[in-house]
């Protein structure tokens, strides 16, 4: 019975996870995530620790709810926002050690702040994930975005990003806000050339003064 009522946000908001081979526009209203921020090379020690802390919190919250027979849900895929200091846009120009990121797992509205706190204190007590205290529940509103599927190594995303930016320009729009990625494949086992990642970037109408 509980099974049929299990929340699956990816199915529920299918249109928001469109993964087409050419760019499309999607609108993201308020979306709630478990998040943890950091800085450094993707796959580096801080990154790995924080991925572990984020998943630790996510599963502890979910299983605690399950134990108490509360609303069950599917844990969503890992997502991340990426940005550079000083509003710089070209990641190729900046050493990976200076990349900023926020790791995110979309989480249903039913999960309360108190549940996160309980999970954090249990995990800290067990000494399982030292960085779990940095995990937060946040609501993010990206609004209108361009979105497209990128197939291949993360290092080759710039080609896909260029296609997305062109598409935005054709609609009289430009990128603003943070570059967002949704990881559909598991980089531990999937060969780089077959990695699937949804790329998303918020856009706004270009005004004439700045478009010159």
């Amino acid at each position: 019975m509980a099974d049929s009522e299990k929340i699956d946000l990816y199915k529920q908001y299918k249109d928001q996870y469109a993964a087409p081979k050419s760019p499309v526009l999607v609108t993201l209203d308020q979306v709630r995530y478990l998040c943890i921020s950091g800085r450094g090379a993707p796959g580096g020690p801080e990154f790995k620790d924080k991925v572990g802390a984020l998943y630790g919190a996510a599963y502890t919250i979910k299983m605690t709810r399950k134990f108490a027979s509360l609303q069950d849900y599917v844990i969503c895929k890992l997502e991340a926002q990426w940005w550079l200091d000083g509003g710089k846009q070209d990641f190729a120009d900046v050493p990976r050690e200076q990349w900023n990121w926020k790791l995110m797992i979309r989480t249903p509205e039913v999960v309360g702040e108190d549940e996160l706190q309980r999970a954090q204190s249990v995990l800290t007590q067990k000494g399982k994930s030292p960085r779990v205290s940095e995990v937060k529940l946040e609501t993010i509103r990206e609004g209108l975005c361009v979105q497209m599927l990128h197939v291949g190594p993360y290092e080759q995303e710039n080609r896909t990003i260029a296609v997305m930016e062109d598409f935005a320009a054709q609609q009289g729009m430009g990128f603003h806000g943070l570059h967002h990625e949704i990881y559909l494949s598991d980089p531990r086992r999937v060969p780089p050339e077959r990695l699937k990642t949804i790329l998303r970037h918020p856009v706004t109408k270009k005004d004439h003064r700045s478009s010159k």
Binding site: Y55, G56, Y59, M63, K66, V122, Q125, K126
Partner: peptide, 17 residues
Amino acid sequence: WEKLCARLGREGLLAGG
């Protein structure tokens, strides 16, 4: 799996490797 994970997860035993 559900029984095991609910019990262990609640105790914070499903994290860190």
